[in-house]
Amino acid sequence: MLKEIDIILDEHEGAAREDLIPILQEIQENQGYISENAIVKVGDYLNLPTSKIYGVATFYNQFRFEPKGKHHIQVCRGTACHVLGSSTVLDQLEKHLKTKADQTTRDGMFSIEVVACIGACGLAPVICVDGEFYAKVTSDSIKEIVETYRNKID
């Protein structure tokens, strides 16, 4: 796992501060998230304090700092979804799973990601679990959807 960070950094030979974001993006793409270890390594490499890197990384919504859960739930917060109540849906989901957006449940089963617009506005409010779309979700239906994944045998 850590090997890959080294490889990514090697590919950025001579990198400077400006390359921080692209490097973080690549790491996230490879590892699914930005680990503490990754930040320490990037800091060593770019000669930047970890506090700075964490600061920059948390400024942008795109980065997550925990590994994704076994099932990854994306909640659309685009305008159409918002108008049709996606914030209540997100609230309910967070409550139900006892975790927060951009975080992962303790048992590692679910992670939630808030996305700007999935591009399925006709189906609003929409969520997407492991790549599968669910249209016109409600506070109630979302619990059912999540539970079917919990019990899924792969």
């Binding site: 503490e36 506090s51 964490y54 948390t58 400024f59």
Partner: peptide, 16 residues
């Protein structure tokens, strides 16, 4: 220490 997050979630603190 540095700024963490943004907007109304901003906080000043150490890494992570």
């Amino acid at each position: 220490i540095d700024f963490i997050n943004r907007g109304s979630n901003s906080v000043v603190g150490p890494a992570f």
